[in-house]
């Protein structure tokens, strides 16, 4: 049997075929990250040449009231969205990982939001949350309760988190289903023979076996949380490209493309990236510790 390793001129062909992807990755992703980093040390209005600004864009961030508000909104959103998405998609995966009638149909139902356009489903949610004619408030008035201003300033964060979690459960569920089905049946049979309770099976078999999935899903969900935009935009947009619940993504877009402050926008983007990076590192640490146990 011949080796699968490329030989001689084959190597060049392999490289040639990989080049478009590599070049795209290098230029588009890595290049733009580097460019953003460089721009964050300048003042640039897009119209004239960038002027070196040292660290001032970063130093000014804490006194930028609108940035701090967006930062706070982003953190509050992530703190709710990440655990809810991970836990709920895991629970649903466990619920759907058993031979019951119509299981395929249930799985499709939970996965459906993942393949729908967020703009379209966002508009549907807008009707669910609408103050007078909305489904939720119609339900509340049926039981005689006062209607709630779901997308108003007090409730917007929670309403928006719910929609984002709903939209993310499908793809999370797939990851956990794959993880669950990789656990050998024998593990459960052995623990049953030993007389383990359902809770003990979950605690000592399922969760440890799912650790890689939980880790992967947490990283992914955290990244998504910090970049969440479409549902938030559709549900909470207000004047001039802003939102009643502006997150960092709104702040970056508005400063860069509307307010002639590309340097400040770049600094904010770097802060966002750094936060994602930091959290990912923490996850890696936790996973390592967990693995050692």
């Amino acid at each position: 049997m011949g080796s699968l390793r490329p030989m001689g001129s084959e190597r060049w062909w392999v490289l040639a075929f990989l080049l478009p992807t590599l070049a795209g990755l290098l230029l588009a992703s890595f290049g733009s990250i580097l460019a953003t980093l460089a721009l964050s040390f300048t003042d640039w209005d897009l119209l004239t040449s960038p002027v070196s600004a040292g660290l001032s864009n970063y130093a000014d961030l804490p006194s930028d009231r609108l940035f701090m508000k967006a930062l706070w909104n982003t953190l509050a959103f992530a703190a709710l969205y990440v655990p809810m998405t991970v836990v709920l998609s895991m629970l649903i995966a466990m619920g759907l990982n058993r031979p019951i009638a119509g299981i395929g149909w249930f799985r499709v139902m939970f996965f459906l939001p993942a393949v729908c356009s967020p703009t379209a489903t966002g508009l549907l949610w807008q009707w669910i949350y609408a103050p007078d004619s909305g489904v939720l408030n119609a339900g509340l008035s049926l039981v005689g309760a006062d209607s709630v201003n779901w997308l108003g300033p007090r409730m917007a964060l929670y309403s928006v988190v719910i929609v984002n979690v709903w939209g993310a459960i499908g793809s999370g569920m797939i990851i956990f289903l794959a993880g669950l089905q990789a656990i050998p049946k024998e593990f459960y049979e052995v623990t049953r023979l030993d007389g383990a309770t359902a809770w003990q099976r979950l605690r000592f078999v399922t969760l440890p076996a799912l650790a890689p999935s939980i880790f992967f899903q947490s990283v992914l969900t955290t990244i998504n949380a910090f970049q969440a935009f479409d549902y938030i935009f559709v549900l909470t947009r207000s004047g001039n490209g802003n939102s009643t619940m502006p997150t960092l993504v709104f702040s970056i877009y508005r400063n860069g493309f509307r307010f002639f402050r590309m340097g400040d926008a770049a600094a904010q983007a770097i802060v966002l990236t750094a936060m994602i990076l930091l959290l990912t590192l923490i996850y890696f640490r936790i996973e390592k510790k967990w693995g050692e146990q």
Partner: peptide
């Protein structure tokens, strides 16, 4: 700076 000013003021008025 009109556009940014208008947004800064408009965001607060919205509240």
């Amino acid at each position: 700076g009109y556009e940014e000013w208008s947004s800064a003021v408009g965001d607060a008025l919205t509240m």
